[in-house]
């Protein structure tokens, strides 16, 4: 500092500095803290997890050994919008035997692309990074860190199939549900 510090000027100078600091910090704090909370709104998890159950069709519509992609139709709340009877996603269904159906998420565990039937028509393949899976969902080749994600499926009265539509974290080897 270039200016001379006289003994009596010092406290008042300090007073000004403190006043400036306090006032600026007060304003910054009262704006900054709510601002951080505002931006962090999405971290306040609202979906309880567990996934909801959706009716996806009937058992006799499926052929043993041949996967079928079905849509999940339901209501959705996206921020302020509430929409009804929307396509929320799809699920692969595979009738393993007369009385048993398996459901697999179409979302590739690698980086989240939609899994399709492979060119050989005998396996699942991800069109993005060439992960391949058997019809049973077991990883065969490619970068996917885990098998395709199985979803709980129930066979109800009259052969009605109900799938629990869950989503899982992408890119890790464990199957961990989101939400």
């Amino acid at each position: 500092m270039t200016e001379k510090k006289s003994p009596e000027a010092e406290p008042s100078r300090r007073g000004f500095v403190v006043a400036t600091a306090v006032a600026s910090c007060a304003i910054a704090g009262v704006v900054g803290v709510p601002a951080a909370a505002f931006i962090a709104t999405p971290l306040r998890s609202e979906s309880g997890g567990g996934g909801k159950k959706y009716t996806v069709g009937k058992l006799d519509e499926l052929v043993v050994g041949i996967p079928t992609k079905v849509s999940i139709i339901g209501d959705e709340v996206d921020a302020w919008t509430r929409s009804e009877k929307r396509r929320l996603g799809s699920v692969w269904l595979l009738r393993v035997s007369e009385k048993e159906v398996r459901a697999l998420s179409v979302i590739c565990p690698h980086l989240g692309c939609g899994i399709e039937i492979g060119n050989d028509l005998k396996s699942f393949a991800c069109p993005c990074h060439d992960s391949t899976f058997g019809f049973d969902g077991v990883r065969a080749a490619g970068p996917s860190p885990r098998n395709m994600d199985a979803l709980p499926v129930e066979l109800g009265e009259g052969g009605v199939l109900t799938v629990t539509f869950q989503r899982f974290r992408i890119g890790i080897s464990e199957k961990k549900e989101i939400g």
């Binding site: 069709g57 009937k58 006799d60 519509e61 041949i66 079928t68 992609k69 139709i73 399709e116 039937i117």
Partner: peptide
């Protein structure tokens, strides 16, 4: 509403 059942993917070139 039910899924249309005629969806055997293995018999077609665009199987989904």
């Amino acid at each position: 509403p039910a899924p249309s059942g005629s969806t055997a993917p293995s018999s077609s070139a665009s199987p989904t």
